[in-house]
C-alpha cells in the first residue's frame, strides 16, 4: 500500500448471513489518484461501495482515512468525512433544475430565521462557474436535469461532489448505461477530478474504461480480491482475464470460434 494513501481498506469482509459478499479485500487510494474497482456482476463491487458510503458496515476489517481508523454509521457520516458517492441512477432529481440539483441539501441561504431563503443568483452563478470549470456549458441552469444527457448528469454530480469539498469521490458504474461518446465525457470528468486532487474510486466492469484513467486497479471476483495492482504492474488484457476468472474466457473464445463465429465478424460487432 502506498504511504501517502488518503483512504485505506484493510482486509474488509462482509457477510450477509451465510453469504460471503466480500472476503479479505484490501486496497488504498491516494489524493490525486484513481483507483478502479473492477469485477463482474456479483463480484462484490456494490457491497464495497455500500461499505465505503456508510450504507453498510463491514463485518471484518478496518477503514483508515489519513491513517486514522474510521467507521461510518450512515451515509451522512461518510459525507462528513469527505467521501461522496455518485450512484449510477440515483444521482439526480430529473425534474429539478440543474442549479437546484447542484446545491440540493446544501443550498446557500441568506436572510434571517423563518425568512431564510436561497440565494438563487449566487447558486446559479456558482453552478454555472463550476460546470464551466468542468468543461460543461449549460446555457441555462434553470434547465431541468432530466433534459441533460446521462453523461452530463454524471458530470454534474461529479462537479457537485468536488465543489462540496469531497476528498474521496466514489463513482458507481458511471459509464455502464452510457453510449461510447457519453462514456468518454464521464471519463474525462474523472480525470479532471483527479487532477483537482481528489481521490477517486471508480467502480466498473469495463476494463476499457478503467485502464485509461486508473492509477491502481483492484480486481474482485466472487467476493475475493484478485489483487491490487499499480498501472505499471498490469496490462489491460490481464485485467480482463482476471475479472472473468482467467482461463474461463480463453476457453470461451475457443468455443465460439469452433461453433462458427468467423474471424471477420469479431465479437465486438455483434
Amino acid at each position: 500500500m502506498s504511504e501517502h494513501a488518503l483512504l485505506e481498506l484493510d482486509n474488509i469482509s462482509k457477510y450477509y448471513g451465510n453469504i460471503i459478499a466480500l472476503s479479505g479485500v484490501s486496497t488504498s487510494v491516494a489524493a490525486g489518484e484513481v483507483t478502479c474497482v473492477l469485477g463482474d456482476n456479483g463480484a462484490g463491487k456494490s457491497s464495497l461501495i455500500k461499505i465505503l458510503a456508510g450504507v453498510h458496515q463491514p463485518t471484518e476489517g478496518s477503514i483508515r482515512m489519513n491513517g486514522e481508523e474510521v467507521s461510518f454509521a450512515s451515509p451522512r457520516e461518510a459525507l462528513d468525512h469527505g467521501i461522496a458517492t455518485v450512484y449510477q441512477d440515483l444521482a439526480m432529481v430529473p425534474l429539478m433544475s440543474v442549479w437546484r440539483n447542484f446545491f440540493l441539501g446544501s443550498e446557500p441561504t441568506k436572510g434571517l430565521g423563518p425568512f431564510k431563503f436561497i440565494d438563487t443568483a449566487k447558486a446559479k452563478q456558482i453552478t454555472k462557474d463550476e460546470l464551466t470549470k468542468m468543461g460543461i456549458d449549460i446555457r441555462d441552469t434553470e434547465q431541468p436535469v432530466g433534459t441533460l444527457s446521462g453523461g452530463e448528469r454524471q458530470s454534474v454530480a461529479i462537479a457537485r461532489a468536488g465543489y462540496f469539498g469531497a476528498k474521496v469521490l466514489i463513482l458507481d458504474e458511471p459509464t455502464s448505461a452510457l453510449g461510447v461518446k457519453q462514456s468518454g465525457v464521464v471519463l474525462k470528468r474523472i480525470v479532471e477530478a483527479r487532477n483537482n486532487g481528489l481521490a477517486v474510486i471508480f467502480i466498473t466492469h469495463n476494463p476499457r474504461h478503467a485502464y485509461p484513467v486508473g492509477d491502481r486497479f483492484l480486481i474482485l471476483n466472487r467476493g475475493h480480491s484478485m489483487g491490487s495492482f499499480a498501472k505499471d504492474e498490469i496490462a489491460i488484457d490481464d485485467l480482463t482475464r482476471l475479472m472473468a476468472g482467467g482461463a474461463e474466457l480463453e476457453a470461451l473464445e475457443h468455443e465460439l470460434q469452433a461453433s462458427g463465429a468467423s474471424s471477420d465478424r469479431p465479437l465486438a460487432q455483434r
Binding site: 464551466t132 470549470k133 468542468m134 468543461g135 460543461i136 456549458d137 449549460i138 446555457r139 441555462d140 434547465q143 433534459t147 441533460l148 444527457s149 452530463e152 461518446k181 468518454g184 465525457v185 471519463l187 474525462k188 480525470v191 479532471e192 483527479r194 487532477n195 485509461p212 484513467v213 492509477d215
Partner: peptide, 25 residues
Amino acid sequence: AEPELMVANRGATASAVAPDGDERL
C-alpha cells in the same frame, strides 16, 4: 471526437479543452 482520452493520464490538461455544449440544449 474523443482525443482527450489518449492523453487522459496525469499531466493532461483536460480542462483546457473547449466546452462540449450539448446542441440539444
